[in-house]
Design a protein around this nucleic acid. Structure first.
Lengths: 346, 346
DNA sequence: AAAAAAGGTGTGTTCGAGCACATTTTTTTA
DNA sequence: TAAAAAAATGTGCTCGAACACACCTTTTTT
């Protein structure tokens, strides 16, 4: 019953040749009704699963997947993605799948567009990208779609019917998780929601997290808390943050919506002795260092490595094994404190 | 440069036949020093990676892996393992790997031994088991070793040189994680560490968690807490727990070292109105239900599904792709509260 | 009625590794 | 030096799916 049937087996059972069975299996036509019926009868009885190894061995087609990634040189946030994609490269090297990373400067739309052009000249079978620049991404995706190049996204969500799949996290919910932890650390007081970003490219990202964060406090009617939003840039943290702390003596917690918690922690430790609860995102080295020092209380792990890995591996599995590509994959919102951090760092 | 070389390519480059190349690659001998050198020269220049698909297609050998699992009928704790193994079955069905689950009654050593005998008669290539019964497991593993059957373990750790691999969690550290969360919820008071188990088969498991839990409070010198250990059985929770609560009016938190937090939560809700912080293990339905009701504050996810999956998949990867089997795989200690639970339930 | 086209079927080759076996070359022995 | 043994090397088949192509049969066209 567990026996694995081959096309040859089916041919023998149906009393035809393997060529005819092949034509039936692939709907290639040129089969008489009589033969079709005989073969279908056999197929209904047995459970035929084509041998994927044999199929793959024969196919000489090489699948090309390009990954469009912000250069980690500009932001270490993207470093784990490289490692995730390298895992995929190793895994699928044996099959006829070539995966290439193309970097762009996350601060420059021009760089983004230029790298996309390079990719288009390569005419890959699929592209995985992070839609950092909303308007430009929509344009680009349309181009890919016209060329018949499949597009998957990760990290940032963008609405487009041309996108095959999205891998990421539920940002609203992750804001709620942060809020629930903050509520555990603090009995009351003022909480600042700090967005740090040079440009506005992460705007939606950050807003969703804030929305989730606020929704928790509103829903629970926690009136002994007051929430304030603060927008900062890398360049003005050192001046604006101390000023904000002076103006808000009741401040007892800060939720940082990006991976830049370390910048807040660092500035904070120079400015005040006061114990302020910090919750941020991502296990980048500097954040973990402050976590270990006790200056950051919790980090939410967005698992970019796995996001990137899943982004390409679903594509590769689709090409090699004809697996379906799930429309959305939402990764769990991992809660990290000093005690369990080491297990998430790879 | 990325070109994939075949044995035929190497043969051509070295000016020998593919048979000779094959003998060199597999150290099968019967190769002249001259030929050896020529081939090695080529191998040093190019980066030869055998085509795993072709290798696997040829091999007619069917690998058999047996999984020895406590029947989830007796304890739903084991249910996710079944699903994890089924994932592996689906994944490796295409290759020549047959994976079978054999159930035993976790309350009966006899059942454990009997199932092992059944497995031995099947003479599989490898066995994955949960060493619930320490003494019996040691015996059994020795038997498997003598028969040349590879043994992997998961969930419970057992010392034996015959064991190839262990997949699980660092229980000491998971106790510490629980402690750090408890310390966050409570400012002070008495905390009970409750072990619930019918027999002693989980003794080591539970003790490690307790040790970790206590170590956290000792290390931090948290003198405003007092820790008490309490051992219960399924049958006497309803009587002993209320009595314990009466005797300890200062009790403000409970750490349950097994997956039976729901039993404590259920009894507690009938006995007292007092808000007692509960931290337990595992995302079984009843636990999640109490988590959603707010009666359980945190659950630590032991991810049995992934444990079981990794247990067999490392074996299958070893057989198919000759991958190394890691000696220990420690899964992350996932912190779950009501806000992020849904993402971990599959 | 002959030729052409379309329909139907089977055969044979390919992919790359692995291994059995045949063949050639070298060395040893009588 | 010839025969036997050993060593070295090459050839050819297998695994299963995919597909090209050759072949035969039936239908359509001129």
């Amino acid at each position: 019953m567990d026996k694995k049937y081959t096309i040859k087996d089916i041919a023998q059972m149906a009393g035809v040749s393997k060529g005819t069975v092949d034509r039936v299996l692939h709907n290639r036509g040129k089969v008489s009704p009589a033969a079709l019926e005989k073969i279908n009868e056999v197929l209904n009885v047995i459970d035929y699963e084509p041998n994927l190894i044999a199929r793959n061995l024969k196919s000489t087609k090489i699948y090309r997947i390009c990954v469009l990634l912000p250069d980690p040189v500009f932001d270490p946030y993207w470093l784990p993605c490289v490692s995730g994609i390298q895992d995929a490269i190793t895994e699928f090297k044996a099959y006829n799948v070539v995966i290439e990373i193309h970097y762009f400067n996350p601060e420059s739309t021009k760089s983004f567009l230029k790298t996309n052009e390079t990719i288009i000249t390569q005419s890959p079978d699929a592209v995985l990208l992070t839609p950092l620049f909303h308007k430009e991404t929509i344009e680009i995706i349309k181009q890919y779609d016209d060329l018949g190049i499949m597009v998957n996204t990760f990290n940032n969500q963008v609405e487009s019917s041309s996108i095959k799949s999205f891998v990421g996290q539920d940002l609203y919910k992750s804001g709620r998780v942060a809020a629930s932890l903050m509520n555990l650390i603090l009995p009351k007081g003022q909480i600042a929601i700090i967005h740090i970003d040079e440009s506005l490219k992460n705007a939606v990202h950050m807003q969703e997290k804030e929305r989730g964060f606020r929704s928790y406090f509103e829903e629970k009617n926690l009136s002994n808390f007051s929430l304030t939003t603060l927008k900062l840039k890398y360049s003005n943290i050192e001046t604006k943050l101390p000023a904000f702390i002076n103006e808000n003596p009741d401040l007892s917690g800060i939720f940082i919506t990006t991976s830049k918690a370390y910048q807040i922690a660092s500035t904070l430790s120079n400015v005040t002795e006061k114990k302020i609860a910090l919750i941020g995102y991502d296990l980048i080295d500097k954040n973990v260092s402050f976590l270990n020092q006790g200056l950051v209380h919790f980090l939410i792990h967005q698992n970019q490595k796995r996001q990137a890995y899943l982004g390409v591996s679903t594509l590769a599995d689709h090409f090699i094994f004809r697996k379906d590509i799930p429309e959305t994959i939402l990764l769990p919102i991992d809660i990290i404190n000093v005690e369990n951090a080491s297990f998430y760092i790879s």
